[in-house]
Amino acid sequence: MENFTPVSAAIGGAMIGLSAVWLMASAGRIAGISGIVGGALDAGKGDKLWRWTFLAGLLLAPLIVGFFDASFLEIDFPTTGSLLVLAAVLVGIGTQLGNGCTSGHGVCGNARLSIRSLLATLTFMGTGIVTVFIMRSLGGV
């Protein structure tokens, strides 16, 4: 546990929560990234712009944080190549089929005490843990 960073994690988490609350308070929307992305591609005309500006903010934010402390931008991708592509396909299909991801189900849905979101969260946490366990056992990553 040498890399344990509970304080910055909780502060970042609170910022994510504030974002979700502000998005609901101002625009009446759930802060679910997979849903926002899906609609950004094919929603009706009046339902698109707000998604793209949200995504623009999402992209810009790390650069602002990095301007003050570049160490936040030092990240590692343990998985590369074809496994990375496979993972992206699974995340793409899984979040659309299951109607949500870590943000939509994990944060917003659970905050609304949705049973669907609770079960989805337990399921993806479970398969995520099993997947990492198998990868570690096979000596990958």
């Binding site: 991708f77 993972a87 699974l90 995340v91 899984g94 991801c101 669907r116 079960l119 989805a120 399921t123």
Partner: peptide, 21 residues
């Protein structure tokens, strides 16, 4: 679809360490 989708998503999340946001 809810549980199957979440299960597939979790596998991808664990494989790469990345979720959509």
């Amino acid at each position: 679809p809810l549980l199957g989708g979440a299960a597939l998503f979790g596998v991808g999340w664990g494989l790469a360490g990345l979720c959509p946001g």
